[in-house]
């Protein structure tokens, strides 16, 4: 059985979409809410717990979407920038290693 993964939803506006497209990652966006684009970065259970501990405003939406929400904007921006820089969404371990 594969390990359960928990998404962090990076919501994509036009500016973010342009940067993703330039990095060749535009196709990774999904339409999640009435056409709103989202890029999902996944954390495993241990990473999820570390994120919730590191950023107390963050919340695990256990009831509806099983996603990690309400990370501070600057943290989301850093995650997004790391994705663009590494041209990959598999960045969570590297991102958390900085903390």
């Amino acid at each position: 059985m594969s390990e359960e993964k928990f998404p962090i939803n990076i919501w994509i506006n036009e500016d973010r979409y342009a940067k993703l497209s330039k990095a060749g990652l535009g196709d990774l966006c999904e339409e999640m809410l009435a056409g709103l684009k989202v890029l999902r970065v996944y954390a495993d259970a241990a990473q999820r717990d570390k994120i919730l501990k590191l950023f107390p405003t963050a919340k695990f939406d256990s009831a509806t979407t099983k996603s990690i929400e309400l990370l501070p904007k600057d943290v989301k921006d850093k995650i997004f920038d790391t994705i663009v820089e590494k041209e990959s969404v598999d960045i969570m371990a590297a991102f958390l290693a900085k903390f």
Partner: peptide, 8 residues
């Protein structure tokens, strides 16, 4: 929570 996260 998800909608707040979009706004944030």
């Amino acid at each position: 929570t998800v909608v707040r996260s979009i706004v944030v």
